[in-house]
Design a protein around this nucleic acid. Structure first.
Lengths: 188, 188, 188, 188
DNA sequence: GATGAATGAGGTTTCATTCAT
DNA sequence: TATGAATGAAACCTCATTCAT
């Protein structure tokens, strides 16, 4: 048997990609990503067929990661507000904890390099969360709005909140809660 | 470089840049932008010192344009809600009317190429609007949150709303109003 | 007006390509070709869209060159044998005079990079010659064989002859004539 | 590298090389050759020290194969014409039966990768045939021409004939015989 | 000022070959 | 010995920018 493809290396490349994208944008050279991952330039292409594919996988990994965190101790039996707050806090926590990941995620989000297929593949992981958020869509203020709107609204409000937490990290706790309250008033 | 002969050419380049960025992202080649603008590749650099500067000016132009539209018939004497709704509608209208501009604007927004100076320069035009939005920050739900939060919140909610209008253009009117109501419930 | 595209440069690139292909085969790097032509690596691509296109143009140029030489003082009124001998001698002369061109030509000939379109484009120049050779096809030994056969036969016999002239350049004259006689006995 | 375990593998690699060269030219990647041969990329290099050596061996194998076929039922006692015709037919048959082999052979022939040593090594197998063809060189039209000329001439005429058989496979028999007659008129 | 050819650094990707397993 | 991941030197090509015209 030959040397076996190492998940660590693959992971290192993805991580390096996140870092470089956060720093240099989507134009970050694959050579630089490889270097930071501690592998040769050519090695990157044994793990990812092309830069575009690498970017798609980075996108996927980041999405999966947030959703995994939210799902981890999700209060399935909690009230709607409780579940919404859980989602709100956990994804914000992630974004604050890993600013590079968040930055890369944002860049990838607005890019046309991410294929519809890739975007679709995140649906699986989003299941639980979407169900909660969609429940919002059947009540109160959001009744009648298209499916997905609550999720989009939350994501949007988080974006806004995050910006301010980034500027005033000390008030993180408070801003996070106030942000949620604003959101909750809007949608409940 | 200094004082430039033809404002038409300058304008054509900016417009072409918007188009190409919308289509190809920030990696859009200057040569292609020049071509679409109907000028030679080199000419672009007599109007803009570098690609980076061009991008900054595009960003500025787009911001100025939305703000100008909002300011045009701004109901200075209207109620707070009235003024907020005016802002909401007009900027959404602009985004819907010029999808390319919106797309370019989003890309530029998340890019590190846009300098803090450039971002600061939009402040002037934002004056009236910000005053309205900040008024929101002194009352109700948003009291105590940092300045700029209302603007960020609106922008974020608009982003979400826009996404859905793009998917279901027929319900544009309704979605725009519903979106505003959600926002308004949150902040009033 | 800007600097104008110079036929000299184009020509230098083609010539350099011939040299490098003769030396290194079709894998000759474009960078090396450019260098030998005295232009920057990138410049090559303002004259030829791709390496493949460059190769096609080299092929064309070489063909055109031989045919031009044959056509130059073609004995239109001469006997069939006279015309055949003229064709034979002149193309052999060219091949002997420019061994690099011949070598490049051979390599390109057997390559799949040369498109049918390019091959077709040589037909124009081949006109006079083909008419002579096809005349052979209507008489004597070749009657009934498909059109193009005489040309192929001559080309093949020349190839063989050339090989020996290359080995014994001193007997060039004699070998050329003997070779023709062999060919002529075959086809007359 | 030294003595090698499996002749089957060696053979499979050679065969795969023929196929890939016919399809992609001499630039065919070793990895692709290995894949088609059903072995790992690295394995190829335990059978052949380098790509260049592999190519030389392919060349050799193909030559040996044609010569073997001609030698198989060679009419040693036949007339000169009979022996010449045998040679003509059998090598043409081979080329027609295995177009890939022929194509690879042509590519290798014009390449500088094939060393003089390799070319020389085909001499052994060519023995019988050359003796026949050289006999031609002592008589009639070819008297006085350098040794090897008859062989080259036949090869050349075959090349021409083959081209047309490829285009009109139905008339294969007839074209083959007519081609020989043309050749024979030239050299007898 | 306008043009677009020229430049060459740098980008992505390929590939012969090596080497750990 | 067989494997195929790892390597890194090129290869082709693009592109922001300069500069002769």
């Amino acid at each position: 048997m030959a040397r076996v493809r190492s998940p660590e290396k693959r992971s290192a490349i993805l991580q390096a990609a996140v870092h470089e994208i956060a720093e240099l944008g989507l134009g970050a050279p694959t050579a630089m990503i490889a270097k930071r991952a501690g592998v040769a330039a050519g090695t990157l292409f044994t793990y990812f067929a092309s830069k575009e594919q690498l970017l798609n996988e980075v996108y996927l990994e980041l999405k999966v990661e947030v959703y995994a965190r939210i799902n981890a101790d999700f209060p399935h039996k909690g009230s709607l507000e409780c579940r919404a707050r859980h989602t709100w806090s956990n994804s914000l926590d992630w974004a604050i904890e890993f600013p590079e990941k968040r930055k890369a995620s944002v860049q990838l989000n607005v890019s046309d390099l991410i294929t519809p297929e890739t975007r679709a593949r995140t649906a699986t992981e989003r299941g639980t969360i979407d169900r909660t958020l969609d429940e919002l869509g059947t009540r109160g203020a959001l009744r009648g709005l298209p499916g997905g709107f609550p999720a989009a609204a939350m994501s949007a409000m988080q974006e806004a909140t995050m910006e301010f937490i980034a500027k005033q990290p000390k008030q993180r706790k408070e801003l996070m809660e106030r942000g949620f309250q604003v959101f909750w008033r809007a949608v409940r």
